[in-house]
Design a binder for these strands. Structure first.
Ligand code: FES
Ligand code: FES
Lengths: 145, 145
DNA sequence: GCAAGATGTAATTAATATGGTTACAGGTAA
DNA sequence: TTACCTGTAACCATATTAATTACATCTTGC
């Protein structure tokens, strides 16, 4: 199964807050761009807030970035929105038969290999920043004018 | 969400067929080691068969590896059991607002970045073979005697 | 103070995926 | 023909997702 679109939406939100920095980015405004419900945005925004990526306050309209654009990587967003738990990108079937030589060792044999693969994935995400994404969007936008 | 344990079970099956190569690996036998239902094994086995990794025939008991141990990578298994579709490890929310500069460009901006990360993951899986797993299991087994 | 409007958050729902289970059709061999 | 196996479909309980609704809480303008 695919990794939740919360991740993509999280990136979307951050990029839009930046591009809309002249205006006020309310959950309703962001929801209109993402094309979803404001409550979905607020939920994801809460996660981004907990991770220290945005500043939002109850009652006060609008969200702001809490860090410099170039200091927010896709990995930060990925971790913030909790789409994949630590060491749990791949699930391993539980309760293999302890009486079978494979059953009693497979988890320990596979686990580290899965971790290496997951780390490779996350490392790749760590090399890209929201700034890269925003620049790319602006670039694409220019080409269509 | 995690990637289906079909992947881990697929690895388990292949490793066990090898280690049990003296005996006959029926779906019932394999199911007992994995601790699941034989029908589940047969379903996964069908996928491994389609991918040319094992030989199984209706009516004939037992499965055999169709390739050399060292020629089967975890990536082969991963692709065989269909746990992740091509370019779809990460899902991107559909129907972003085309009237928003971010909405109309985000998919094209994010897509390639997600692909790079997915490729990094799969590359890591391609570096490990079932032979490595089997050797590791045998090694671990020795240590406990 | 109070009304308007925003965020925070919980509960509900429909759609979808997973893994297990049962059942049975069809193939193989003794 | 019998016994046993694989192949496959149907069904179910469970879990997750994303959307939706509702409402408590907070802030500001008046
Ligand atoms: S990615 Fe969805 S509106 Fe931007
Ligand atoms: S029995 Fe499950 S991994 Fe081996």
């Amino acid at each position: 199964m695919s990794i939740s679109s919360r991740f993509a939406v999280g990136i979307h939100i951050l990029a839009l807050i930046e591009i809309n920095k002249g205006g006020v980015s309310t959950s309703e405004y962001l929801a209109a761009s993402v094309n979803t419900n404001p409550a979905v945005i607020r939920k994801i925004m809460g996660m981004l807030k907990n991770a220290g990526l945005v500043n939002v306050r109850p009652g006060i309209a609008g969200a702001e970035l809490a860090k410099n654009l170039s200091e927010i990587t896709l990995l930060d967003v990925y971790k913030a929105v909790n789409v994949v738990q630590e060491k749990e990108l791949f699930s391993i079937h539980e309760n293999p038969n302890p009486q079978c030589p494979v059953g009693r060792n497979i988890q320990n044999a596979i686990g580290p290999l899965f971790e290496i693969a997951q780390t490779a994935l996350e490392k790749a995400l760590g090399h890209v920043t929201i700034e890269d994404v925003v620049k790319d969007i602006i670039e694409k936008e220019k080409l269509n004018h």
